[in-house]
């Protein structure tokens, strides 16, 4: 079914947990600075919010993740009620792409991450 190159996750190829720790700060700054979506990421407890985003980055890079589609639905249901829609999802994906590019992740790997992220759209938006 799979070749050795495909079997290895993007997560492993870009350096695992330390790479996620670096990526999460870059990514978190981008979403917080974006007025279209920052209100979804405001949290008095910035460490907790950063931990959530690190879990998200780990998931979309194919790293060890325990998120199920049902978790994604439940976790975002209250935000959908607040108006979370495709525009916001696209903005987050755009920041994800920029983050990976800034960290010099090769284009084919970025594309794989974006494909995984796209696969979460229906669950995140509760459709």
């Amino acid at each position: 079914m799979s070749t050795a190159g495909v079997a290895k996750s993007v997560y492993e190829q870009i350096g695992g947990e330390p790479a996620m720790a670096a990526a999460v700060e870059v990514f978190y700054r981008k979403v917080l600075a974006d007025d279209r979506i920052s209100h979804f990421f405001e949290d008095v407890d910035m460490e907790r919010q950063a931990a959530k985003q690190k879990a998200f980055l780990t998931m979309v890079t194919g790293g060890p993740s325990s998120y199920s589609g049902r978790d994604m639905r439940a976790g975002h249901a209250h935000l959908v009620k607040l108006g979370l829609n495709d525009m916001h999802f696209d903005a987050v994906v755009g920041h994800l792409k920029e983050t990976l590019e800034e960290l010099n992740v090769p284009a084919p790997l970025v594309q794989r991450v974006l494909t995984i992220a796209e696969g979460a759209r229906a669950d995140v938006l509760n459709r």
Partner: peptide, 18 residues
């Protein structure tokens, strides 16, 4: 404290140093 924390993070300070 909360608003300064966010501003300093956005200005480039790392969360682990805040």
């Amino acid at each position: 404290v909360l608003s300064l924390r966010k501003k300093l993070f956005l200005a480039g300070l790392s969360l682990k140093d805040l």
